[in-house]
């Protein structure tokens, strides 16, 4: 009934940010996890909290085994916020802390969040993380916080943003120059650090971007896409 108007829409229609994760390339090295921690001011959970299952990893490497030792085969799957087109976490938020941006991001407004945690329950991927305590960083990590990223306080939900600070930076540059953001101009920290280039990021509305081309690969699938969540991330996996 009501269309959302985006005043800052770029020439040629809005962006739709998306990612492709090639599971056949992923080695499970966890470089993306480390990069994400450094980029996004992710708090240090500590041993005790981590053992309670409260470690925060906006991107995590899920390990699955096939077969028994010694013939076990380990499989890795990086899981991060899928930035669903029809996100289950969004409508359940009573204060609009979780909402959908016009460029297809599943945004989390920390200031608004009151911490009812319904979004965390309703996320089928369990990629939402909660700040159970006031965040802290051991010395000297507190000296290297990223000034572009908010430090989240106690009692709010947080999750992967697709490094929205980088996206917005590139968008503003492009807007000033009166053009669209070029393919490859924006790379989230995890994509940037992936040594095997298993992760690719870009605009799905641009048919010539790497993401658009790769996601048409016949190896592609969406994680739990049968739920109708319309995830923005396409996984690639060869079926043996």
């Amino acid at each position: 009934m009501v269309e959302y108007r985006d005043q800052n829409a770029p020439p040629g229609g809005p962006y739709r940010w998306g990612m492709v994760i090639d599971l056949d390339r992923c080695t499970g090295c966890e470089a993306c996890v480390v990069a994400c921690h450094a980029e996004n001011n992710i708090r240090i959970s500590g041993e005790e909290e981590a053992s309670k299952g409260r470690a925060v990893n906006w991107i995590r490497i899920e390990r699955y085994w096939e077969g028994e030792y010694p013939n076990a085969q380990v499989k890795f799957m990086p899981v991060l916020c899928q930035h669903c087109g029809s996100a289950p976490c969004e409508p359940v938020c009573p204060v609009y802390a979780s909402y959908h941006t016009p460029d297809g991001l599943n945004a989390q407004v920390y200031n608004r969040c009151v911490g009812v945690r319904y979004c965390g329950n309703n996320c089928p991927y369990t990629v939402r993380y909660f700040n159970w305590f006031e965040p802290h960083w051991d010395e000297p990590l507190n000296e290297q916080l990223n000034p572009d990223v908010t430090v989240r306080s106690v009692g709010v939900m947080e999750k992967c943003t697709f490094c929205v600070q980088r996206i917005r930076g590139a968008q503003q540059t492009a807007q000033k120059e009166g053009r669209r953001v070029k393919d490859g101009e924006v790379t989230p920290a995890c994509v940037q650090s992936c040594p095997t280039e298993a992760l690719v990021f870009g605009d799905r509305n641009d048919p010539n971007s790497r993401v658009s081309r790769l996601s048409k690969d016949d190896r592609g699938f969406g994680l739990l896409e049968e739920l109708g969540t319309e995830p923005s991330i396409t996984y690639l996996k060869r079926i043996k």
Partner: peptide, 14 residues
């Protein structure tokens, strides 16, 4: 909701 149309999870505004 009409005055404050924020898109959430593919649900209609009203």
């Amino acid at each position: 909701a009409l005055l404050y149309p924020i898109r959430t999870g593919g649900k209609p505004i009203v």
